[in-house]
Design a protein around this nucleic acid. Sequence first.
DNA 1: CTTCATCCCATTGACGCCCATATGGTCCCA
DNA 2: TGGGACCATATGGGCGTCAATGGGATGAAG
Lengths: 146, 146
Amino acid sequence: MNRFLSNATNRIDSKGRVSVPAAFRSVLAERNIQELYCFQDFVFPAISVGGFDLLDRFERQIAADDPFSPAANQMSLLIHGGGVFMKLDAEGRLMVTDFIRDFTGIAGEVTFVGRADHFQLWRPEAFLALQAQAREERRLAGRRSE
Amino acid sequence: MNRFLSNATNRIDSKGRVSVPAAFRSVLAERNIQELYCFQDFVFPAISVGGFDLLDRFERQIAADDPFSPAANQMSLLIHGGGVFMKLDAEGRLMVTDFIRDFTGIAGEVTFVGRADHFQLWRPEAFLALQAQAREERRLAGRRSE
DNA sequence: CTTCATCCCATTGACGCCCATATGGTCCCA
DNA sequence: TGGGACCATATGGGCGTCAATGGGATGAAG
């Protein structure tokens, strides 16, 4: 398995750390990702986490645009200004900083959500709610096309 | 036989495992499926289980869209965030995780339902109820067209 | 000196791997 | 045709390993 898939919820300990699920860590290892690039997701109240390639892809997209366009400017503000590098500790845990807490509302537990080439950190309740909503919208859309 | 067909109900043991019906296992073997892709069904309170090709089909669907579109984002939330890879043990059983239980309401027994290119995990009562309903609707539809 | 992050080690509970047993069905032979 | 051997499937459970978690100790920074 070479993509980030599935979701799991882990507890934040008294020091503010949380274990990244082993399945995700093995994908990171497979892809040789050591420094994690994290940024605030564009769509959801979640932190997206991936490797350099993720940042790379965004930068390419900016470059494809007119680099001085408002859209490119906004994008850069988000992915550069709103991005952080993080490292895991020896046990595969990461610090849940205020950068993460403030944007996601995460407090006691973190839900890790696979997104193929990256994964996300969610507040458990927010994930359940928005996933249910996505499912409902898809169900309605599917019915319409029958 | 190369499709998933019919249904069967098996018991969950004290460790939370359940045997996949032999008929389904032989289809899996025939199709050379070793890692099972499981996801929360879009329509029913059931887990759909299939091979890699299943995920592949979804991902192609996303790629056809603009990958940054809200629709693609939502779809990814469902098929990546709501999907898992699972493996059978040596005896052909799978773990009934909370991921499965919470979504389906499965507790003591699992009904396996063939769906041609994949199969589904249902709570027995839910399956019976929905199957009865489907039969009834078909009956009415048939009478109307006579 | 105090606070906070990092390194290291301990615990425990879950899961994977293995082998054992039961149950029901099929086939063969008397 | 009935009985019994045989077999495959479903099920039960022991045990080792690893992941998730907790917490002490050390070091850096304000």
